[in-house]
Amino acid sequence: MNLKLLKLDNKMNQMIRIELKRAFCNVRFLYSILVGLLIAGSQIFTWVIPAMEKADYYLLGKGEYPVSVFNTWIGASGHTYQLTLYFIILPVISCLPFSDSCFIERESGYQAHILTRVNRNAYLFSKSIAVYLSGGCAVVLPLVVNLYVTMMAIPSVLPEASSRTFPIFEHSMWSGIFYTHPYVYLGGYFVIIFSYAGLFSLFGMISSFYVRNRFVSLVIPFIVYTLVNFVLGYTEYYKYSPELFLRPDQPAGAVFSSIVMFYIFGLLICMILLVREGKKYDLYV
């Protein structure tokens, strides 16, 4: 057994543990969750609680279909501002917890202490994992909390396409799954949102290698995200805008293959830039 390799693995594991702890046990992670919870929580008060009162309407002949979790939670409430707002500011929420940590460490000189103890690749790799996971969690957790609270208040009535009260249509992605196993649909969508949120926060971290101001690095993913939405919004390719396809209510109908393709493309770009950064020898502010 190669003891040197073992030592390196131990260092890598240790670095990952340290970075994960720093990313999650940090007040900014809490603040970003709070921002998400404020938005998701306000939707509970403005739509879910009033919907509870309408839960019996169907029995009284007042509604065409029973109120359900799957058309009341935030991810299905395209008519509310909360869903729109959440997915407008999603990249900023994902970058808040830990994206600028690399920048702060480089500026303060702390990076020098780390790089004298572990190689740059191990540092970047562990940092990327921590940034990715914290960014993804910061975005998904408030949505999960909203879903959970809605589940406690509203029955999980199976969606029915003919009722026209559910946001997913025949042409939408995974519509079959939504109308048969809606929780599986939601689970799948959470994975997509988590993946993209992680990607945005990773992108924020990478942009901090090239900017001189940490606040700018926090909004670069947001700027790109908004610009892409703006440009695509005026073309026939609007459904490929992340601001639209990341929404569980699929206002423009998502395409799974393009979601995966864009994700892989984005991840590849991040990895190339990270490898490039890892090859640098000089630590120069």
Partner: peptide, 10 residues
């Protein structure tokens, strides 16, 4: 209105 999207003018 449920079913109608709220959109902020881009």
């Amino acid at each position: 209105v449920p079913g109608q999207q709220f959109e902020v003018p881009i």
